[in-house]
């Protein structure tokens, strides 16, 4: 599998990309664009088992362990959430469980959008991050057990 740069480095890249925009429209358009480019999730994974609660919209997420690294696939019925998922996947997918568990994901505050994300939305974001970290913990336990 292709080696991903370390998490803080990808976070910095994303922050720099967002620094190019000085108004909310451009930031959102960029986010929406990322959402549109998110690879589709197989419909068979769009079930209750893979559903993340805590958002107004529906989010489904699946993860797998490949060569010691976790790969995430996710989708949502709402576009801005898809953009957020896409950013999270860019940062966390292909990383080791330990790095994912320890990631502080400060980029979300640094791209200057949290003030724009209504409370329910931030909660949804928190629920997604929590699920990604839970998955990482589960894979780590599984790997240690075998």
């Amino acid at each position: 599998m292709e080696q991903r740069p370390p998490i803080p480095q990808i976070e910095d890249e994303i922050v720099e990309e967002f620094e190019l925009f000085d108004n909310w429209e451009d930031k959102y358009e960029y986010l929406i664009d990322m959402g549109k480019k998110l690879p589709p999730l197989d419909n068979m994974h769009k079930d209750d088992e893979h559903r993340i609660r805590g958002c107004q919209s529906t989010v489904w997420m699946v993860s797998e362990l490949r060569d010691g690294q976790i790969v995430y696939h996710a989708d949502s019925d709402a576009m801005i959430v898809k953009g957020l998922i896409s950013m999270l996947i860019r940062v966390l997918s292909g990383q080791t469980p330990q790095d994912i568990i320890q990631a502080d994901l400060g980029f979300i505050d640094r791209i200057g959008m949290t003030s724009h994300l209504a409370q329910t939305r931030s909660n949804g974001l928190r629920a997604m991050i929590k699920q990604m970290k839970l998955d990482a913990t589960a894979w780590q336990l599984k790997a240690n057990a075998s």
Binding site: Y28, Q56, S57, A78, M79, I80, H116, L117, A118, R121
Partner: peptide, 21 residues
């Protein structure tokens, strides 16, 4: 084709408060 949540967020950014959900 547009989820109400997306509309709600983009309206909020324009100072318009509506309810979605």
């Amino acid at each position: 084709g547009i989820h109400p949540q997306d509309i709600g967020i983009l309206l909020d950014n324009q100072g318009v408060a509506i309810r979605t959900g």
